[in-house]
Design a protein around this nucleic acid. Structure first.
Lengths: 148, 148
DNA sequence: GTGATATTGTTAGCTTTGCTAACTAACTAT
DNA sequence: ATAGTTAGTTAGCAAAGCTAACAATATCAC
């Protein structure tokens, strides 16, 4: 029987390891980021635009779990680089629709590939079973982050 | 037969998802960090000191995958807060030994628990099988980050 | 021994990314 | 009409990363 006030030691240890691994993973990926000229947060936002279609600034901020001012600046920078556009909504003039440009899509493809290349190769070298574990883990964590 | 120049689509997709999930996970954890007064990078470094014993600044920087100046500042801040100490090495006077203080250990325990509390609870609510998947995934990713 | 080279850590200064507070503009409801 | 809410921006701050340049110490070649 598990107490509610005290979780199984398991859960804490796993949480700790997941946290630790995530920190190190991102620090490693950030390095190669710079090669593509597109930073992590920018490529992540651009990715949402490319795969999720045009978005409101607020939706984009929510999707990226970032505050509006932060996203406002990121979008401004993407726009300055010609990677995204902002267009006014006709029905609600407070709203702006943010969309990826063709250039943005192209750069994302190239940048993304390059940035994750090393990791992808490492994952490819794993056994089928290990790849499956990572795939399931990603799904579980995604779920925890959104619905949990 | 797999080409070497072109990985199985699988690997790229998994890499992408892992990356995406890691970004969101850390952004989420950072929020609760502030409650303990100990930021993510600091608690991570302190954790290395507590569980790995006294370390050289360089070793600490390497362990945390960070450059020396970055770790130098983090350690200075930990020291200012009375969470770590720096002592000179007798045999090699270029080296400093960095160790966690009792206060540092105590704060780490408390802070760490609080920071990862939500995640730990979520993990605890998963099935035994799902927890096992996360555990294995963490081990695999740790290995990729260090030895791979 | 001495001079060149390595290594360790620090300082200074920059960039990026996040935040909150305060504001404007526009929509909604009473 | 007016009060409140929502969307986005601007300004200003802090944290955490980096490189470049430097001081101090070790080590190695000779």
């Amino acid at each position: 029987m598990k107490k509610t006030a005290e979780l199984a030691g398991d859960a804490h240890v796993i949480a700790e390891r997941i946290h630790s691994v995530a920190i190190r993973l991102l620090r490693r990926l950030r390095k190669t980021d710079s090669a593509s000229g597109l930073s992590g947060p920018k490529s992540s936002a651009l990715s949402v635009l490319v795969f999720g279609g045009p978005q409101t600034l607020k939706d984009l901020a929510t999707a990226e779990q970032v505050r509006a001012p932060t996203m406002s600046r990121l979008v401004a920078e993407l726009e300055a680089d010609g990677l995204a556009t902002k267009t006014d909504d006709k029905h609600d003039r407070r709203i702006i629709r943010i969309a990826a440009t063709a250039k943005g899509r192209a750069l994302l493809e190239a940048g993304r590939e390059r940035r994750l290349e090393v990791l992808a190769r490492q994952i490819d070298a794993l056994s089928r079973d290990e790849r499956h574990v990572l795939q399931r883990a990603a799904a579980i964590l995604l779920w925890l982050n959104t619905d949990g």
